[in-house]
Amino acid sequence: MAPRSTPTARRVRIGVELRRLRERAGMTTVEAARALGTTQAQISNIEANRFGVSADRVRTLAHIYDCTDQPLIDAVADMAADRTRGWWEEYRDTMPSPLLDLAEMEHHAKALRVCQVINIPGLLQTPEHARALFREAVPPLRPHEIEHRVSHRIKRQAVLFRDVPVPYTAIIHEAALRMQFGGRDVTLAQLHHLIEVSEEPHITLRVIPFDGTSFPTAGHGLDYAHGPVTALDTAQLDTSHGTELVDAAAKLETYRMILDRMQKATLTPTASKDLIHRIAKTF
């Protein structure tokens, strides 16, 4: 079997989860290989996602590791069975892989929660707002690279408007609403767009006001994707060096707590929408 050339983060996650199951069982790769009737190298290659793995093999390994968490087994097996190439693969040669992994994460999420302090969440940006942001990228992007980024960002938004849209909660600080990226007209159009999409029943916008009494964190933006089971959740962090995907259980628990605390600092959805209206009137 030929090695995978560029496995996506979702495919890599299968190997990560199988390694975690083996380690919880207290088995070495040698012991796992012996039980499966294969080589240690094969187990290592599966866990490193150098080779693909079938849904049946996932279930066999879970049995060897005495895993009784059937929802988790089913979810990982479903991931292994899904060989569909997503729309984001058309950008494989023109954009950084982490941005493609983000689109894949959003596409498969059962629910999404995000928080942003300075920027409007990507799934809620207008093309003009996104373009203004990409023009300020460091290092600078060339014009065609900017258009690739804008196109990719807008296509990501399809998860909010497909036949079965993903439930989406966005926590936005008032500062992000007042930043005039692209100038007055672009900002005003962006605010009106937020008001419009907030009418969708599956989209919840909550604003942290400047006059709030608490603010749990002032760090980078955070996107949290809920998987079919909690163990398969993923967090994506915006950092100065790019995006970072996190799947360690302890860290995920921390990010859920951060989101919960941030949500407690927000206005209600109705009050948030009223604040956006008032800010729009100042432009």
Rank of each mutant, 00 (worst) to 15 (best):
E145G: 03
I276Y: 00
I172Y: 05
V159T: 10
A48M: 12
P216Q: 06
V30R: 15
A218T: 14
R22K: 06
T213S: 11
T6V: 11
H129G: 04
A250E: 12
D69A: 04
M79W: 10
R85S: 14
A35S: 05
L275Q: 06
L205T: 09
S240Q: 15
Y65S: 03
T39F: 04
H192M: 10
T68Q: 15
A265I: 08
A32S: 09
L160S: 08
I172Q: 06
L275Y: 02
R20K: 14
V197I: 15
R135W: 04
D82Y: 02
L232S: 02
T266D: 08
E89A: 14
L112K: 02
H192A: 03
A231H: 07
N45I: 07
P165D: 05
Y91M: 11
D238M: 09
M262F: 14
L141D: 00
L222V: 11
Q116C: 15
V246A: 07
L21K: 00
H226T: 14
H107M: 07
R135K: 14
V138Q: 12
H148F: 10
S198A: 15
R178N: 03
H129F: 12
R162L: 03
R156K: 06
P228A: 15
V117Y: 12
G86A: 10
L72F: 02
Q180P: 04
R156A: 07
T204I: 13
P216K: 01
Q125I: 01
Q125R: 14
A271F: 10
H220T: 15
A170M: 14
L267K: 07
R162E: 05
T282S: 09
F134A: 02
A176M: 06
I279E: 01
E244R: 15
D74P: 01
P121Y: 12
T282L: 01
V76N: 00
V58M: 00
T266F: 07
R92V: 13
V229D: 12
D260F: 05
A32P: 07
V186F: 10
I172P: 01
E47M: 04
F210D: 12
P127S: 04
R135I: 02
R24P: 03
R11P: 00
